[in-house]
C-alpha cells in the first residue's frame, strides 16, 4: 500500500458493489435452478398471501426443491421482519 492510500476515502469501490450484487443474485438464481418451472410463480403467490397478514420484504420468501434420495422436498423459508 502506498502512502497516497491514506488520502483515499473509505468509500466502497463500484467493483466491490458489483461483486456483492452478483453474489446475491447468482445465489438466488441457482436456488431455483433444476427445480420445476412453477417455483417463481409459487413464490410470488406465497409472498402475496403472507403480505395479507404481515409486511415482509420482497426477498423474504425462499422456495426451493431439495432432492433427498427418492423423495423431493419442497422447502419454504420465510424471513419475518424484526419486531420493534
Amino acid at each position: 500500500m502506498g502512502f497516497l492510500d491514506y488520502f483515499r476515502s473509505e468509500k466502497k469501490t463500484s467493483a466491490s458493489v458489483a461483486k456483492e450484487r452478483l453474489q446475491v443474485i447468482v445465489a438466488r438464481e441457482r436456488s431455483h435452478r433444476g427445480g420445476p418451472d412453477y417455483l417463481p410463480a409459487l413464490q410470488e403467490d406465497i409472498l402475496a398471501v403472507i403480505r395479507g397478514y404481515i409486511d415482509i420484504e420482497d426477498d423474504a420468501v425462499r422456495v426451493q426443491v431439495e432432492r433427498e434420495g427418492n423423495c423431493e422436498v419442497l422447502e419454504l423459508n420465510v424471513i419475518l421482519p424484526d419486531t420493534d
Binding site: 469501490t13 467493483a15 461483486k19
Partner: peptide, 9 residues
Amino acid sequence: KGEMLSVED
C-alpha cells in the same frame, strides 16, 4: 482503481 471486477472476483 476498483472500477472493474477482478479475475479473482
